[in-house]
Amino acid sequence: MEILQVIILGLCLGFVYALMVSGLTLIFGVMRIVNLAHPILIISGAFVSYWLFILFGLDPILSVPAAALTVALLGVLLYKLIFEKNAAQQTYSEMTVLLTFGTAMVIDGLLAFLFHNTQRTASPAYATDAIFIGDIFIPLAQLYSGMVSLGIIVVLALFLKYSEFGIAIRATSQNRTSAELVGVNVKFVCLISFAIGCALAGSAGSLVSFVFSFFPSRHWEWIAILMSLVVLGGMGSLTGAVIGALVLSVVSSLVGAFYSPAWSTMVFFLALFLILIIRPRGLFGIRTD
């Protein structure tokens, strides 16, 4: 019974992780930018929800749109200032990675300066509650955040699958020139995809604000965690990212429960390292270079 309990908790968190990486994988797919600033954008979103909760008592789940919008605007700003020139060429280069690395440092420094590196968690009423199904107990925070994440991912998947613009996004990520030749304004698609990716980071941040404790510098750890998820699923593939997130989250929960919580994050780092080395293309195949 205990093992089932751990797996269910792992799955709930897994959906949150999946939401956290969905934006990363979208941006990589369209622009070939490995956005190391993604985790700090998530934390920015978490701060938005956290302060809305502390100052106005707004439930973090209800502030998902606010956080998404704020971070999307921040993303558009970053895109215009930093990435526009590189994104236009779709170069998959070290240089863009270092640019995102620098961006991550800038936001990290700014947030740490404003709010200090103290651990924070938004604590809505349900954060300490749980429901019982038979012997299995599920904390409401995990349950709600998992469900909201799942919902957002489904909406994203439907958008990419069926809407005209969604198909254009997928077409652009497959072949930029071909997309341009059927009349797609590729630069606009890039900008919007970047904004959507950042909005996804922001909405994930809202959920993070009450599921995890967070502080600005924590994003370094999350860089490696998120990278492990996308690399497992194959960069640029949403389905792959979701599967990667669920698998690693469950494994990490199992390690945490049956071996030692101290080693649970090691699962992500080791997985990332090994997959990059053994199969640079990721287990589910979509190319990384």
Partner: peptide
């Protein structure tokens, strides 16, 4: 390339 950068962070 970028894969190496990421693997160095993982390391």
């Amino acid at each position: 390339g970028p894969s190496f950068i990421i693997s160095s962070i993982a390391l």
